[in-house]
């Protein structure tokens, strides 16, 4: 079947098997390998992308269901080489270790902050419950999202828990 969609601002059209999941279409057909696969049960969230403005686990959709959609993957988040504040937050606050869950975690945080620009720690924690990280214990992921939320509100982020060496 033929599908057409806009991915990271670029129109794409391709022939896919009807059973192709959106995540496989993104990874295999478009070679955008920043979107990861970590489970088979739509549980880990490593495959999260933004579909028509909503954070979506791309293993829960068929590629054909995304026909006509606007999709942003992790590769499309930075603009003109400038990191998105959430990407910056993850770097500034050590919100990642192995980096495998990170693209999905960041794309979920995009949806979270879109809906709630001033989340409490509790709201961040519950907002990211659909994304699993095995490395960080989430402590610094929460800090990273708090950093980004402050930046996106035009405020100065709270200082890091460590003395920053620049």
């Amino acid at each position: 079947m033929q599908v057409s969609m806009t991915v990271n601002g670029k129109a794409v059209t391709a022939d896919v098997e009807p059973r192709t999941l959106l995540v496989h279409f993104i990874r295999e057909s478009l070679s955008l390998t920043g979107t990861h696969v970590g489970c088979e049960t739509s549980y880990c969230g490593a495959c999260t992308v933004v579909v028509n403005g909503r954070s979506t686990k791309s293993c829960t959709m068929l590629a054909v269901q995304a026909d006509g959609a606007e999709i942003t993957t992790i590769e499309g988040l930075a603009s003109n080489g400038d990191l998105h504040p959430i990407q910056e937050g993850f770097w500034e606050r050590h919100g990642l270790q192995c980096g495998y869950c990170t693209p999905g975690m960041i794309m979920s945080a995009v949806g979270l902050l879109d809906e709630n620009p001033s989340p409490s720690e509790d709201e961040i924690r519950h907002g990211l419950e659909g994304n699993l990280c095995r490395c960080t214990g989430y402590h610094n992921i929460v800090k990273a999202v708090e950093y980004a939320a402050a930046k996106m509100r035009g405020e100065e982020p709270a200082p890091a828990e460590w003395e920053v060496t620049s």
Partner: peptide, 26 residues
């Protein structure tokens, strides 16, 4: 640098989704 909280050199690739893991290889 020793003892300093230097930001990770690994991160620029990973936060952009441009790290290369084994399953990314074609």
């Amino acid at each position: 640098a020793l003892g300093g909280a230097v930001k990770r050199r690994e991160d620029p690739a990973l936060i952009r989704g441009k790290g290369r893991y084994t399953d990314d290889i074609k």
